[in-house]
Simulated scan of single mutants.
Amino acid sequence: MTKQSNPQPRHLNELALLRLAQIIGNPKANPPIPALIPVGRTTFLNGVKSGKYPKPLKLGARSVAWRSADIFNYLESIGG
């Protein structure tokens, strides 16, 4: 039996949009949100600016989200 590596949670699809807390996690949420990319907020946002992490979509004047496909493609590219 072969083991398939699929970092994508079953409840998300390629068209889903992820907010920052869904990417970096939030242990204080009820229930806690596990991190897909376990880094701090500032580290992640600096990585977005530098091009290390995917760029977000602008949803409004003060609202952004990331395509789940972009995040999971990044995770696959680093072997996550």
Results as ranks from 00 to 15, higher is better:
Met1Ile: 14
Met1Leu: 15
Thr2Asp: 15
Lys3Glu: 13
Lys3Leu: 15
Lys3Thr: 15
Lys3Tyr: 13
Gln4Tyr: 02
Gln4Asp: 05
Gln4Met: 12
Ser5Leu: 13
Ser5Phe: 12
Asn6Asp: 15
Pro7Val: 14
Gln8His: 10
Gln8Ser: 10
Pro9Ala: 13
Arg10Val: 09
Arg10Leu: 10
Asn13Ser: 14
Asn13Asp: 14
Glu14Asp: 13
Glu14Ser: 07
Glu14Lys: 01
Glu14Gln: 03
Leu17Phe: 04
Leu18Val: 06
Arg19Pro: 01
Ala21Met: 12
Ala21Asn: 11
Ala21Phe: 00
Ala21Gly: 05
Gln22Lys: 09
Gln22Arg: 12
Asn26Met: 06
Asn26Ser: 13
Asn26His: 03
Pro27Val: 04
Pro27Thr: 11
Pro27Trp: 01
Pro27Gly: 02
Pro27Arg: 04
Pro27Gln: 01
Lys28Gly: 01
Asn30Gly: 00
Pro31Cys: 00
Pro31Thr: 08
Pro31Lys: 08
Ile33Thr: 08
Pro34Phe: 02
Pro34Ser: 05
Pro34Trp: 00
Ala35Arg: 10
Ala35Phe: 05
Ala35Cys: 12
Ile37Thr: 08
Pro38Asp: 13
Pro38Gln: 11
Val39Gln: 06
Val39Phe: 02
Arg41Leu: 04
Arg41Cys: 05
Arg41Glu: 02
Arg41Gly: 02
Arg41Ala: 05
Thr42Gly: 03
Thr42Ala: 07
Thr43Arg: 05
Thr43Trp: 01
Phe44Ile: 07
Phe44Glu: 01
Leu45His: 03
Leu45Gln: 14
Leu45Cys: 08
Asn46Gly: 06
Asn46His: 11
Asn46Glu: 09
Gly47Phe: 04
Val48Cys: 13
Lys49Thr: 10
Ser50Glu: 11
Ser50Phe: 00
Gly51Ser: 12
Gly51Phe: 12
Gly51Arg: 09
Lys52Gln: 08
Lys52Ile: 13
Tyr53Thr: 05
Tyr53Glu: 05
Tyr53Ile: 14
Pro54Ala: 15
Pro54Thr: 11
Lys55Leu: 08
Pro56Val: 10
Pro56Leu: 07
Leu57His: 06
Leu57Pro: 00
Lys58His: 00
Leu59Tyr: 06
Ala61Val: 07
Ala61Asn: 01
Arg62Phe: 01
Arg62Asp: 03
Ser63Val: 09
Val64Lys: 04
Val64Met: 07
Val64Tyr: 01
Val64Ser: 07
Ala65Gln: 12
Trp66Gln: 06
Arg67Phe: 02
Arg67Cys: 09
Ser68Ala: 15
Ser68Arg: 00
Ser68Tyr: 03
Ser68Ile: 02
Ala69Asn: 09
Ala69Tyr: 00
Ala69Val: 07
Asp70Glu: 15
Asp70Thr: 12
Ile71Ala: 00
Ile71Asn: 03
Phe72Ser: 04
Phe72His: 08
Asn73Pro: 03
Asn73Phe: 05
Asn73Gly: 06
Asn73Ala: 14
Tyr74Asn: 03
Tyr74Arg: 07
Tyr74Thr: 06
Leu75Asn: 04
Leu75Thr: 04
Leu75Ser: 02
Leu75Cys: 06
Glu76Lys: 13
Ser77Glu: 07
Ile78Lys: 07
Ile78Leu: 07
Gly79Leu: 10
Gly80Asn: 10
Gly80Ile: 14
Gly80Trp: 09
